[in-house]
Amino acid sequence: MKLLTVSALLCAVIALTTAARQHHVEKRAICCPHGWTKACESVNANLASVRNIRDYYFIRKVIYHATHANGETWIGGSDGQVERYWFWIDGTRFSYTRWCHTQPDNFLGNQNCMTMNWLGQDCWDDQHCGIRHPYVCVKNMLSFLG
């Protein structure tokens, strides 16, 4: 699995603004069925959480630089435990949202996973977890020290 890594200088700046996290984008699309977080966990990371507007636009910029597009991309939001109760897979508080108009809608049921850049738009959508999309992993930089 080939991950694109943000430059060291940029990572240092990100560490100051997003609590010491390193960001990765997977270029090829994967499927996110049962166990959908395992791709990120395999590199000791989580799907990205978005805690504020700075995180949101930074992740969007990383996606664009890695793929040269603003395509739909998995991030770490889910309501798979309790319908309509969205949480970040890394346990951080869900305080910032950027849902597209009429979303989340749980269309046809079981849309428990979150993408950003829905249909190229600057917003989020709930989707069935089995759809193929690129994904963004976030890794705590402190894990590189030990």
Rank of each mutant, 00 (worst) to 15 (best):
H24Q: 08
F94D: 04
S42Y: 12
A69G: 10
E26Q: 12
T37K: 06
H101E: 09
K38M: 13
F94V: 04
W99Q: 01
P33Y: 12
N52F: 02
T73V: 02
V6R: 11
R21K: 15
N112M: 12
P104M: 06
V6D: 11
K61A: 14
G109M: 04
H65W: 05
G35N: 12
K61F: 11
T97W: 02
T18S: 14
A29W: 05
T102R: 06
L10D: 11
N110P: 05
R54N: 04
S7L: 06
A15H: 08
Q22G: 10
Y85R: 15
H24F: 15
G109I: 03
R84H: 14
C100K: 00
C11A: 12
K38P: 04
M114I: 10
F107E: 15
W86C: 02
T115W: 01
Q22C: 15
Y85A: 13
Y64W: 06
V13C: 09
V62Q: 11
I30N: 12
I63Y: 00
C100V: 02
Y85V: 15
V62N: 05
W118E: 13
K61W: 13
S7W: 07
S42D: 15
H24E: 07
N112Q: 13
A48E: 01
P104H: 07
N52Y: 00
Q81W: 05
Q111H: 09
V6W: 08
V62K: 07
L9K: 13
F58T: 00
N112L: 13
Q111P: 01
R51H: 09
F87E: 10
A69Q: 11
V13T: 07
F94P: 00
S49C: 08
P104E: 10
F107R: 13
S95C: 06
G91L: 00
V82E: 08
W88N: 01
V13I: 14
N52S: 02
L10R: 14
D79F: 02
W88L: 02
W118R: 12
G77A: 06
G76K: 03
E41N: 11
R54F: 05
R28L: 11
S49Y: 08
N44E: 14
I75L: 04
Q103E: 09
H65I: 07
K27H: 07
W99D: 01
L4V: 14
I53F: 00
E83N: 08
A45T: 01
D105E: 07
W36T: 06
W88G: 01
H34D: 15
N44R: 14
M116R: 03
Y57R: 04
W88A: 01
G76A: 03
A39R: 10
W74K: 09
G35Y: 09
H24V: 09
T92R: 05
E26D: 07
W88Y: 02
M114Q: 09
W36C: 12
N106F: 13
L10V: 13
A39I: 14
P104N: 09
T102P: 00
N110E: 11
L108K: 13
A39T: 10
N70T: 10
A19T: 13
